[in-house]
Design a protein around this nucleic acid. Structure first.
Lengths: 128, 128
DNA sequence: TATAGTGTACTAGGTAACTGGTACACCATA
DNA sequence: TATGGTGTACCAGTTACCTAGTACACTATA
């Protein structure tokens, strides 16, 4: 698995790590019970403090995406890339989007239409 | 126009004000060239510092949603509730949603499906 | 038991964000 | 011109967040 940080990204480092790992889990790049890089290894690789990585792993553990065996390592939880998990994740994203739309006085239909347009402009799955 | 703050909401006060005003503009509750409450009035009403309200109004001005006449007041810009404006707003919301989905390894189709479901659960336009 | 690997607790410094107090600048009107 | 309304600039305090340094606790294995 390859985790990289984007200096342009304004999100905190530990959030970027969380997102990258979760994405790898959902996409299946990181299979069930696979070990994640150790806190120190990843910290060295990213030129970051071990505690920063640790905070990311702790977040992931709270979300149930990974499990920790003290003294051994951190591992991907099973069942993170199956349908139900994707569904749960999709629900969360959808709720955030709907809330955002509502705050701006837009309807769900308008939102969906706009998403279709935007996705059409940038056909495949690209960031931004 | 009625602006209220939600103590539960973790967003900064000035952002809440910005969103409420923009929503009123887009929905047409606040018509073109209508005056907004004065900085001081709104500050008193919300029990907040005038500068906090001023920051919100400045943001809205930067976005072109309102215009300021120094010494007179702040007014709603015209053309904020017509179709093109809604469209622009919808695009922004859609971009955010797509980005969120992408970060989580989801496709646009999955996102749209989930939005449909969520909107079906909470039929009308309700917060959260 | 010694060792080298794992994650974690504690602490602290740096930075940015948010909010507020106060004084100032502008404008319309009596 | 005086007055009472408007928005704004400046500064400062508080807080929360992020990141880091260091030392500790746990586990497998030679």
């Amino acid at each position: 698995m390859l985790i990289s940080l984007d200096p342009q990204d304004t999100r905190p480092i530990y959030v970027q790590i969380v997102d990258e790992v979760r994405r790898a889990l959902v996409l299946g790049t990181l299979g069930a019970d696979n070990p994640l890089p150790s806190v120190r290894d990843l910290a060295v690789q990213l030129r970051v403090n071990p505690n920063t990585v640790s905070q990311a792993y702790r977040d992931l553990e709270r979300q149930g995406m990974v499990y920790v065996r003290r003294g051994q390592g951190t591992y991907a939880s099973p069942g993170q890339s199956d349908g139900s998990q994707r569904q749960t994740l999709a629900e969360e994203v959808a709720r955030r989007a709907l809330h955002d739309a509502w705050r701006n006085g837009l309807t769900a239909a308008e939102l969906i239409g706009a998403i279709r347009n935007e996705d059409h402009k940038h056909p495949t799955e690209e960031p931004l």
